[in-house]
Simulated scan of single mutants.
Amino acid sequence: MAHGLGTFVVLALAYFTVVWATDHSPLQDFCVADVSGQVLVNGFACKNPNSVQADDFYHSGMHIMGNTSNFLGSSVTPAFVSQLPGLNTLGISLARLDFAPWGVIAPHTHPRASEILTVLEGKIQVGFVTSNPENRHFSKVLNKGDVFVFPMNLVHYQRNVGNTYAVAMVALSSQNPGVVPIGNTVFGSNPDISTDILAKAFQVSDDVISNIQLKF
C-alpha cells in the first residue's frame, strides 16, 4: 500500500510539474493592458472590461517608412503591447523593418519569442546561428513574398543586399518579445564589462576592447 501511494505521489508531482511548465490558457476573452497601472505583474494588469474600446485593439502607422538615416541604415517600427494594449496575454506581436540600400539589422536575439519574416519589397539576406557546440549558421537571400523563420532566442540578423530600399514585416510569438543586440549588450553595458574579460573572450588586446566600448 505504501509503495502504491509513493508511486501515485511521484506521478502526481510529475503531472503538475508539466502543467506548471506551460503557459496558462486565457481565462477571459481579452485582457487589454493597463499600461499606466501601478500593479506589477508578469506582463500588464487588465483594464476594466467596461472601459475597453475598439481602439484598444487598434494601431495605425505601420504603412509609414521608418527612419533609416543611422549608422546601420535600418529601422524597426514595433507593434508590441506598449503600442497595442489589446495584445496583452495573447502571445503575439509584429514589427515593420525598413532598410536603406545595404542597411543591416545587427545580430540580436529575442529572449521571449520566435519570429517569422515576410519580405514586402526588395532583397534581404537573413540568417541565424544555432547554439553551442555546433554554432551552425543558416543563411538565405529572400525576395519579395518570401518567408523565413527564426527560432526563439537564437542570434539572428537581416541585411538589405540590394541598391533600393527594402521592407519586411515580422510576426513574433510574444506580446513583448524583448531584444538583446549582441554588440550593445556586450560592449555597451552599464557599467562596462571589464576589458580583460572581453579581451580574453574575443582573443584580442585590452586596447581593442576599449576602442569598441567607446563606440557603444
Rank of each mutant, 00 (worst) to 15 (best):
F8L: 13
L11Q: 14
T17E: 07
V19G: 02
V19M: 02
A21P: 03
T22M: 11
D23T: 02
D23H: 06
H24V: 06
L27C: 04
C31L: 04
V32T: 01
A33Q: 02
V35E: 03
V35R: 06
G37L: 00
V39Q: 11
V39A: 13
L40R: 13
F44T: 02
C46P: 08
C46N: 05
N48V: 11
N50G: 14
A54Q: 13
D55G: 14
D56S: 06
D56L: 06
F57A: 14
Y58C: 14
S60H: 14
S60C: 11
G61C: 12
I64A: 15
M65W: 10
N67Y: 02
N67Q: 01
S69D: 06
F71H: 13
S75R: 01
V76A: 09
T77H: 12
F80S: 09
L84Q: 02
T89I: 00
L90I: 00
I92Y: 09
L94N: 12
A95Y: 15
R96G: 08
L97D: 03
D98S: 12
F99G: 03
A100H: 01
W102V: 02
A106I: 12
P107D: 03
T109D: 08
P111H: 13
R112L: 10
A113D: 08
L117I: 15
T118D: 08
V119F: 09
E121P: 04
I124V: 10
Q125C: 10
G127P: 00
R136A: 08
H137S: 14
F138T: 09
K140A: 13
N143D: 07
K144I: 04
V147L: 05
F148M: 05
V149D: 03
F150W: 10
P151M: 00
M152S: 13
N153R: 06
V161L: 01
Y165N: 09
Y165T: 15
M169E: 07
G178V: 11
V179Q: 15
G183V: 13
G183H: 12
T185Q: 15
T185F: 15
G188P: 10
N190V: 15
I193C: 09
I193H: 05
A199L: 02
A199G: 03
Q203I: 00
V204N: 00
V204Q: 00
S205P: 04
D206A: 03
I209M: 05
I209V: 09
I212N: 04
I212C: 03
L214A: 14
L214H: 12
